[in-house]
Design a binder for these strands. Structure first.
Lengths: 195, 195
DNA sequence: ACCTGAACACCGTTCAAGT
DNA sequence: ACCTGAACACCGTTCAAGT
């Protein structure tokens, strides 16, 4: 899962200490972000990892890059969960259950959900591709079964769930309520077209 | 609207220059936030307002206080709009239309929607009371007409709309799509109960 | 090739002195 | 009663020197 075996990547090019520094930085970031949120001091992260601040910047040029390294782990687990739930005989319920896991999985600390929304909507979207591919299977089955309104885009569903996660970071019960509300519809009969 | 004529407030206690400084700070903040987002330099705001940084802190002890002063204006307009729409013969459509105005009204600059979610969910909630009261009339009529599912709380509807605003700050078309999706329901038939 | 950390720039916040 | 801005603390980011 963490191996980078692309065909033409130079073999044995990554020194052991480089790998180790990267792993230490990610572990330190996880700990710091969980304590202080996504805005935690990067100097503190480097200190906790036992490396210089320059090494942090070399591995992760921006804070978002560091956050996406943490998100990649969460995305992996959520992709697994999506593959499991894709077997469900009730695709609509399965999609909703997965969306609950998604919201919960991207709110490990304040600011994580906002970073997830950026990474999901980003141009490159490297980190989130496995997640989106696994979710697409689940989403398409729900669509085929008629559980999702025609014309609905997965990207919009993920963004809406990301928005719910963003505003309920410290309140898991509210997250469940808002997700149920958005799933069932706030105003089911209203005219959908703007203006 | 901006007069503070509470019964036992000391009359003539607010010096003209104090009022003027406050107004200048708000105007400067609006300009700076629109240019740089809600994280704009507070020193820059003070400089643009032509006052010392200490004066900014005296008037607005926290950045959120300054943001809420801007939000109060937006809330006033949205309260007016809610009162107009409360006359509508189609309460469900009126509520959805107002929610569009709400999302649009709290996304004048990046970070405004997040501040709105804080102010709407806050304990004191001074700034947002007029908004919530006017919205409640509209919301209750929609509920009585059956347009809103029984048991739905206005606070949850506002928070959900705030979440949509937060993740679509730079993309008004996405805001419309997500609002339509949440209004109609992402998965209308799914089991609503968590677990 | 990678790491280190000093150096620089910038900002938030407080508070003693002034009016 | 309010205003000012110097002073302090802290953090992000770069990059010359070292291994």
């Amino acid at each position: 899962m963490t191996s980078d075996d692309s065909p033409n990547a130079p073999v044995r090019t990554v020194r052991a200490d480089v790998r180790r520094n990267r792993a230490r930085l990610i572990a330190a970031a996880r700990e710091m972000f969980q304590r202080d949120g996504a805005g935690a001091s990067l100097e503190g992260v480097a200190r906790l990892a036992g490396v210089g601040i320059g090494t942090l910047y070399r591995h992760f040029p921006t804070r978002q890059d560091l956050l996406e390294a943490l998100l990649a782990d969460a995305y992996g687990e959520l992709a697994d969960r999506a593959r499991e739930l894709a077997e469900s005989p009730s695709p609509g319920d399965a999609l909703l259950e997965w969306l609950r896991a998604f919201v919960s999985g991207i709110t490990a600390f304040p600011g994580m959900a906002a970073a997830a929304v950026v990474s999901l909507g980003g141009e490159r979207g490297e980190a989130s591709r496995p997640l989106r591919e696994a979710a697409a299977v689940l989403f398409d089955r729900a669509g085929e079964s008629g559980a999702v309104p025609p014309g609905t885009a997965l990207g919009d569903v993920l963004r809406l769930a990301g928005g719910i996660a963003t505003v309920t970071e410290r309140d898991p019960e509210a997250a469940d309520r808002l997700l149920s509300l958005a799933a069932a519809g706030m105003i089911p009969g209203a005219a959908a077209a703007p203006r």
